[in-house]
Write a protein that binds this DNA or RNA. Structure first.
Lengths: 335, 335
DNA sequence: CTGAAAGCGCTAACAT
DNA sequence: ATGTTAGCGCTTTCAG
């Protein structure tokens, strides 16, 4: 079967000891340049690759990190992953992506799978459905480095990177107010997500600042983060059934924006569609929906920062107690 | 640091030998039910997880497979990945995703990284830019099981799954002919991709069948698969500059459809936009672009089939010589 | 500068 | 039904 060449084979062929070969391959200073060259040449010629399993087992390090996001088919997360990879590759780390699909069970399984020594650290953006954090708390307590990005939890102290959700939400809502809309609804994400509370706060701030009374009945949550289109449609139908329909909607996320527009298309004639503004990193959405004002998160940057902080935790020789909670600014895209 | 409990720890605590514990944990028939229970209980209580590195090193198997796609932020590939995962998890395999971004170098690096024992097999959809297949041929020659899906190569014999691209392209083109369009352009993908030739063939078939002469000047290739928006815009600008502009375009892929619509939005007033039909698995595109006729590939199914075939290769006790090239039918979505 | 030897955690012959 | 032992491929003291 698939039987790659090992360090022993090289040693034998070159009449050296395995340890010398190992050292030569990792460019150790205590190896003769001549020997190094011989070894490296032979290795390349026979395209030797070090067995990462053996190497990790021995070193207690895998040089790979795990990323847990709800889904990759999402512009925000895919750009964040690009950012993560850009830093990781530069520092010699490999990235393993896994999707929770916003489901609690999948998240638990995936994290468990990644955790046990298969990765040196974890980059997590929480699933929408997760309310119980014990699977993560346990790993953290055991010493596994973890950095949260975008959707964070405060069950314990660690590095985090988020967007300035509150301000972004405020700016988005204000853009609707500025355009003259009075009755602005809010289609929110799952209630226990960090981003949900922050964006709600921004929405409330904007209303308050412009003297518009907060109307709780204009806020609808999507407990599955919009993964189930029905829940979005129910929310939209609810808005449509209100005695006074909202004339604008501030939508909390990319996926919800998609679902929201789709639901309105399905449930109401075009002239009854409200104006929509919201968080989105999709190029498609703003491409095809001319009047969609969106708040862009610096996804790539967030990925980069998160990865850098994780590497810092992993490579730190001493326990880290000084944690950073970095907040990056969002950008308003107007049409 | 992160020091998980091992099989030895359990053995010591329970006054058993490591092998007994190992066997108990893998539910071996030769272990006393009583002992099994004790071991499993203890393991769960102290949340033991087997170290996958050690296990893989010993067994010469990693129970994980690598997937190489151009990008995950693409409805077709993300659904294919869902299909792959659905089969993989059921059979106890872990899936490692990696993106080539349609770049040759990234593809080579990623495949090398996955290959050496880190995975038991590879599921590959070729990058648009790749013309030299030696990195894959080598691995295959060394015995690594490889299955191609969607974008295949014929450098060697192995299992493949593809959509019926030729027929899909024909149906899409015909739908444009049926709507009365006469001058139908084709925005094609990178020339060396398998899907490009097949879809071009279908386009030609449709024209021929309806007595429309083939006009080479109506065909433009995108060598980077649309990753570079400029190349799409150049193609569209070329169409717009033709003395007789095409009144319809058949587009070869999801990403190109996006780029094509976007380019027309940018370069021409709405009433000069041609009708567009093409391959796409995007929910957004057909949601927001009312007159977009699309050909859907059975992405999820393709993922499932590919994974099943890969597992068959991996688990086969003897070299496999009887390879299957499965072709799945596409579906036309009309509006 | 190079080699010998031990061991990372796990599993599978080979005992018993 | 359980224990003993060896070894997967690599790195890393320790010893020359």
């Amino acid at each position: 079967m698939f039987k790659p060449i090992t360090i022993k084979d090289i040693a034998q062929a070159l009449e050296l000891s395995p340890s010398t070969v190992s050292r030569a391959l990792s460019d150790s200073y205590e190896i003769n340049e001549e020997t190094k060259k011989r070894v490296i040449e032979y290795a390349e010629k026979h395209n030797y690759r070090r067995n990462p399993m053996a190497s990790s087992l021995r070193q207690g390090r895998s040089y790979s990190i795990g990323v847990v996001v709800c889904e990759v088919a999402n512009s925000f997360f895919s750009h964040a992953i690009d950012g993560i990879e850009s830093v990781a590759y530069g520092k010699g780390y490999h990235v393993i992506i896994s999707q929770s699909h916003d489901a609690y069970e999948r998240e638990v399984v995936n994290i468990q799978h990644l955790a046990n020594r298969a990765v040196d650290g974890l980059l997590i953006s929480m699933s929408a459905e997760t309310k119980d954090f014990s699977h993560i708390i346990n790993l953290h307590a055991q010493g596994l480095p973890i950095v949260f990005f975008d959707r964070v939890i405060d069950a314990f102290e660690t590095h985090t990177v988020t967007a300035n959700n509150q301000k972004g939400a405020m700016v988005a809502t204000e853009s609707l107010i500025d355009r003259g809309f009075k009755k602005i609804a809010h289609l929110a994400n799952a209630p226990h997500l960090s981003i949900t509370a922050e964006r709600l706060k921004g929405y409330e701030d904007a209303l308050k600042q412009h003297g518009i009374p907060l109307d709780e009945s204009l806020i609808r949550y999507c407990h599955h983060g919009g993964r189930i289109q029905r829940e979005v449609e129910e929310a939209i139908q609810y808005f449509l059934n209100l005695p006074e329909k909202p004339d604008a909607v501030f939508v909390a996320s990319d996926r919800l924006s998609m679902g929201c527009l789709s639901a309105y298309n399905k449930l109401a004639p075009r002239d009854e569609h409200p104006a929509v503004a919201g968080f989105s990193n999709s190029d498609v959405l703003d491409l095809l929906q001319a009047d969609f004002t969106c708040i862009r998160q610096p996804a790539f940057k967030m990925g980069q920062v998160a990865m850098e902080m994780l590497i810092q935790l992993i490579e730190s020789r001493y326990p880290v107690y000084d944690f950073q909670n970095i907040v990056l600014e969002t950008e308003l895209i107007h049409r």
